[in-house]
Each structure stands twice: as structure tokens, then as C-alpha cells.
Design a protein around this nucleic acid. Structure first.
Lengths: 337, 337
DNA sequence: ACCGATTGTCGAACCGGTTCGCGCAAAGTG
DNA sequence: CACTTTGCGCGAACCGGTTCGACAATCGGT
């Protein structure tokens, strides 16, 4: 079922059908209705590939995310879902591309073969060569996160520095003097993951300002690593009474480690960090945390990208978000011990 | 940068370049190398839309999943990631489509505009009209889950009936006589979600066989619903000493409810169910559960679909999986109270 | 030296849309 | 009534690939 068939049945030329579909030229009421009726009867929809070829746009955006090798966190997954829905609302489809795999074939295909009009990048690194690849083929992109030089880029990011600082201040205000920081895995920190770096930076800075004793740890993205990490924390410094974490996947393990060490949360030990709200509420006690606004970020990223696609020369824009800490049940005053 | 440009620079015709790329006709060593050199220098990759138009295949598969309105569970998200990776390994891209939204525009586009060669359906219902839509446009599909008449379909599914039965037997073997079943939300059950129906069926059957007292509940897909559900369970029948759940998202809430009711797991109360392994390990105590093999299922679904695409007339195949229950720490002998 | 088979390359048509310029007929103007 | 304007629809060209039939050059055999 193609446009030629529609034209034939309606007794008009292919171009006229096209103009009815696009509305880019006026068509008389009579022929329009005649054509429309045929279209409706046959349930005709124009072929996406042909249309993409003809007008140079695929109406598809690429979502570049890290491979599952290192488990997905709930946060990443929330992003994916929300980006897809925001895009669907604007009549864009979303093509998923796991990047960071062996040869990155999928990512290269996405770009080189022009399967997409633009891309949204997740899990940003401070120096992110994916931008270079995108620039070199002239594909617009929007990042979820900031590189080291965010001034003139398109992105929507979380102010991990401020968020980590806020967590330290919150704990210091409660009287905690010895605080640990549980970061993402070391391999990601070394790779330059921006959240890991900026969070660490904020934590370190605020800890120094408040004069609290601090140690920082890297921790694998899973429960058992979290448990092991917590054991190390208490082994290294038994006087630790609180921790801040960016590592959502390890959270369950951290809690378990605390329970096994006989530390009651929040009476003996406070836990806080940066976590998607929905996941913060699944643990007991519910986590006091800066809730990652995944839905808003997904929507904003799509909005920015679509704007950029529609106005190729528009000046760069971005959104830096710093959601407040939601007080729940995992933090409390430092024990008077 | 198109194939004509390559041809011009190499001093050959477009068709010869095409044959070098596809290898569908022999090309002499000399010209092949000449062409290949130009291609490499310019980093040329053929345009995906043009190729799709010409040979009628997009090399893309659609992944149809439910919208996030009712939160994603970890299991669904694991599927998505694993499907994308399995597809990438076979040089297929994955287009995401949230179905079940207002007018399902995205799903319709996927099919009607032939953006994909085939589709993988998640969150199956016993009567799933998405199959009819797919059939009507002649797109092959593979389901993750089974309809009411799975005999001659293509799918990879979990034997929720057997799994729920196994959970009941496990608990009954431990001496539990009063067991609750926590299902997915009522709205999903009414919509005919197959996991909810088959799980319920298996639970009910096994409970009857073993002569245990049972009640079944529907529960929202979030922690607070889980907590509320547990309160109802203990209110309805304080003698309940165990539960089986299919509702991963509610798990944290169920645990919290138990803690607040003063029931210690597993000493006073046993919990088990069907959950993705990774999530079963984040709760404390770690959940004894039938681990959903998300990775294997994602891979199998892609394998089946690709096979179906390559051999359109191949007879239907499917895989019914029934992973064993992984013994962890959330179940124990019924109290002698 | 001639003929048939083989090998390698080319040109043209096609996939299914979009878009531009043109021609024709009806309507508007003096 | 001749002359421009306007409104509609058509045909052709194009987007960037793939594929088929034709043809020239080379090869082996008698």
C-alpha cells in the first residue's frame, strides 16, 4: 500500500495525495475529501523510510546509554522510560544505543548511517568523546549531565556538587562529625563520570568547610559490594556515624551491612544521598535524600533536543537542577556517645 | 557523503560501489581496493533510510512496553536493557514504543509506517489485541509472556503457574498453614495480565492441594501500597505466617509493613515470590525467590525474532522457562506458635 | 585464428515518498 | 471581450541506496 496506489484509486496524481497529507499546498475540498476517504478506507500510513529519505529527517532520536554490564540503576532506567514518553508526546521515536561496548558498533551505526536526527547522551563523563563523534558527523545532541566545560553546551544536569554539599551540611547540622562518602565504582570514577567526580568534589569541600572527619570510598553497583563497603567503612573508622551515597544500587547492601554491624538507622547511624525518589521509598527506613527528578529531566532533555532540531542556529541552553533534600526517616541527630 | 560521491572519487559506477559493500557480486581486486580506500578515507557509511527503502528491511526491531504511568519494575527494565544488547549483538537497533497510552499513536506509527521489521511485546495480556494489530499489518512478533492460546505462537515466557506453585510448596514444606498472595494491581489483573492470572491460578491450585488457608490480594506497584497491603493481610488474618508475591515494586513496602507489625523475617514470617535476582538481593533479609532470568529471556526473545525474520515460514517456536527457587534468607520454618 | 564461456563493470530502473515548476481553467479587471 | 490574476492539479526530478540485464574484455579450447 503506497502513495501511488492511493493516487490511482482516488483518480489523482501522487503529488496531490502528498499535499493532502502534508497540507503544504492548498487542495480543493472536493479532491481532498475524495483522497481522504480512500486513505481512511485503506488505513494508509506513509512509509517512514521513504519519507525519511526524501526529507532528510527520521523523526527519531537516539538515546545513548551505558551497557548493562555494570548493572543499571533505577535512576538510569527511570530516565529511559521518561525520555521515551516525552519523545512520544512530540511524535518522535526513540532508538536505544548501548555505548561503551567493545567496538561501539551500535553507536557508530546510529551516527554514521543517520538513523536519528539527534541524540540524548546519558552517563556523561567530564571529557566525553561521544560529543566529538557527534560533532564530526554534525548530529545535534543533548546531554543528561555536564562535561568539564558546560558553558556553551546543551544539557540538563543535576548539580551533584551542591547536592553532596547539602547532604554533608544536613548531617553536620545534626551533629555528625565523622562521615563517609560512598561513590560509584572506581572504574567509573577513573573513566571520568561526572556525577562521581562532582559529587566527590562537593562532599570533600563541604566536609572541609564543616571540619568533619571524612573518608571516601568507591563501591560496586550492587548490593553485596555495598555490604562489603560498609564493613570497610566501620573497620577503617568505627566512629563513623553517617554516610552520603550516590550509589543507588549499593544502598540495599549498605543498609544490610549496618544492620549486621548492629547499627540502627537512624538512631546510631544516618544515611543520605542522591537517589531517585521512588527507590528512596522502597528501603526501610525510607531514605532522606535529594530526589533525582528523573521525569522532569527526561522531559527537559527531549524538549531541548527538539528545540535544537527545529532551530539549528539557536543559542545553547541548559538546565541545572538541584532538588531539595526530602526528609524521610534515615537521618537523625548524632548519638551523644 | 553518498554512494555517488564515492563512485565519482573512485572513478567507478555507483553499482560497483554497492557490490563492494554488499559482496553480492564479485569485484576485481584492483577496483575493490581502490574503492575501499576511498571509503576508508572518507569514513563513508551508507544511509540507513535509503537502504531500508531499497531493500524493504529496516534492521530495526520494536520493543513495545507499557508506559511508566504505573511505575516500571526492575524486571521490566532489565528486559529492556538485555533486549537492546542482544539485538545490538546481531546488528539490529531497537526502537522503543510505549503502548497503552491514550491513543497509542507511537505503537500505530511503529507498525503502520513500517519503522521496524518486527516487534517484541512485553507485559502480555491473556487476550492481547496488539497481536491482531501486528498480524493485520503483517509484522512478525515475539512475545515475552504467553497469551491464553500459546500453542502456535512465538514467545518466551515464564511459567508463572509452576513458579507460584513451587513457592506454595516451599512454604508448605516449611510448615506454613496460612499464606497470603500479593498480586499485581487490580487494574492489571482486570486487564488480563498473564503473569498476574497464571500466578494467581498456580497459587490457588497449590494452596488447595496442600490444604493451606489462603487469601489473595492485589497491590499497587509501589512501596506504600505494599505496606498498606501487608497491614490488610495481618488485619484480615493475623495467623498468616507467609506470603508469596509477584509484585516486585511492592516488596520493600511489604518488608516495611512486617517490620512495623513486629514480625521478624524469617523467624515469624516467611516471604517468597518471583523477582529478578538482582533485586531479590537488595532487600534484607535477601529474598528467597524464583529468580527471573531477564538476561536469558531478552536474548531468547531476540533470537526468536531474528530467526523468524530470516525464515518467514519457519514453524512457531517458544521457550517456557521455570527457574528454580533460589534459597536465600527470607523463608524459614513456621513458628511453633 | 575463431568461437563460446567467463569475468568484471556499467547504466537504468526501482523502492516510496517530497517538492518544484508549469499549464490549464475559472475568476477578476478595465 | 481581451488580458491578467488566481487556484488546482499534474509530471518530472530527486533523496541514496539495490539489483538486474547488457556488454566489453579476457580466457581457454580446438
Amino acid at each position: 500500500m503506497n502513495i501511488g496506489e492511493i493516487a490511482k484509486r482516488a483518480g489523482v496524481s501522487r503529488s496531490t495525495v502528498s499535499y493532502v497529507l502534508s497540507g503544504k499546498r492548498p487542495v480543493s475540498d472536493g479532491t481532498r475529501q475524495k483522497i481522504q476517504r480512500v486513505i481512511d478506507e485503506l488505513g494508509y500510513q506513509p512509509n517512514a523510510s521513504a519519507r525519511a529519505l526524501a526529507n532528510g529527517r527520521t523523526n527519531t532520536i537516539g538515546l545513548v546509554f551505558p551497557p548493562a554490564g555494570n548493572h543499571y540503576t533505577g535512576m538510569q532506567l527511570d530516565f529511559i522510560g521518561n525520555v521515551v514518553e516525552a519523545a512520544a508526546a512530540k511524535d518522535y521515536d526513540v532508538l536505544l544505543s548501548p555505548s561503551g561496548m567493545d567496538s561501539d558498533r551500535s553507536f557508530q551505526r546510529l551516527l554514521g548511517e543517520r538513523r536519528v536526527d539527534g541524540a540524548i547522551l546519558m552517563e556523561l563523563r567530564l571529557q566525553d568523546d561521544r560529543f566529538d563523534h557527534l560533532d564530526s558527523v554534525g548530529l545535534p545532541a543533548v546531554a543528561i549531565g555536564r562535561t568539564a566545560h558546560p558553558e556553551n553546551g546543551w544539557w540538563v544536569g543535576l548539580d551533584h556538587t551542591a547536592l553532596a554539599e547539602a547532604c554533608v551540611h544536613h548531617l553536620a547540622d545534626l551533629g555528625h562529625r565523622t562521615i563517609a562518602f560512598v561513590n560509584r565504582p572506581e572504574q567509573l570514577l577513573r573513566a571520568g563520570y561526572e556525577s562521581a567526580h562532582r559529587g566527590l568534589e562537593g562532599f570533600t569541600k563541604a566536609a572541609a568547610e564543616r571540619g568533619v572527619t571524612s573518608r571516601t570510598y568507591c563501591c560496586g553497583d550492587d548490593a553485596s559490594s555495598g555490604q562489603a563497603c560498609l564493613e570497610r567503612i566501620l573497620h577503617d573508622e568505627p566512629a563513623t556515624t553517617a554516610l552520603v551515597t550516590l550509589n543507588e544500587a549499593a544502598l540495599g547492601g549498605l543498609y544490610r551491612g549496618l544492620a549486621q554491624a548492629g547499627r540502627h538507622v537512624p538512631r546510631d547511624f544516618s544515611v543520605t544521598g542522591v537517589v531517585a525518589g521512588r527507590w528512596a521509598e522502597t528501603v526501610t527506613p525510607q531514605l532522606t535524600a535529594a530526589d533525582v527528578p528523573a521525569e522532569q529531566m527526561g522531559r527537559l532533555a527531549v524538549d531541548l533536543l527538539v528545540e535544537r532540531l527545529d532551530h539549528p542556529e539557536a543559542p545553547a541552553r541548559h538546565h541545572l537542577l538541584a532538588p531539595p533534600i526530602s526528609l524521610r526517616a534515615s537521618t537523625g541527630p548524632a548519638g551523644t556517645g
